[in-house]
Amino acid sequence: MRALIALLAGTIFGAGLALSGMADPARIHAFLDLFGTWDPTLAFVIAGAITPMVFAWLIQRRLPRALSGDAFALPGTRRIDAPLAVGALLFGIGWGIAGLCPGPAIANLALAPFAVLPFLAAMIAGMLLHRLRAAGR
């Protein structure tokens, strides 16, 4: 049941990415390219995505647990530390270079599977590298 709910959410998420143009690396690049033909679409996508989420957070505060019966497992919101800052900066550089972040990259398995494969392989390698580095400490 939980996996089915997650599959439904993932499918809606992937549909949203394709519909909004966010699966297209060229469109992400155009948003980040302030000195080119700037494309503001990504800002509208964020605005659209935040709208239902604001209500979801308002409802979440009034719920003792999730509808599945599971306790809420949510990350903390306060701590701004060096890993957060360095990680976000490295992610932003990679995002700017390739025009891809994790969601669109995975959704592209259906749209441009061969083109996205090198990015996905490298992304998993990068995650693994972080995992090994964390384990080595």
Binding site: F91, A105, A121
Partner: peptide, 14 residues
């Protein structure tokens, strides 16, 4: 490849 490495490592670190 470079973009993917940075996105993978950066998103986990951050």
């Amino acid at each position: 490849v470079i973009g993917g490495l940075l996105v993978g490592f950066g998103t986990r670190l951050g």
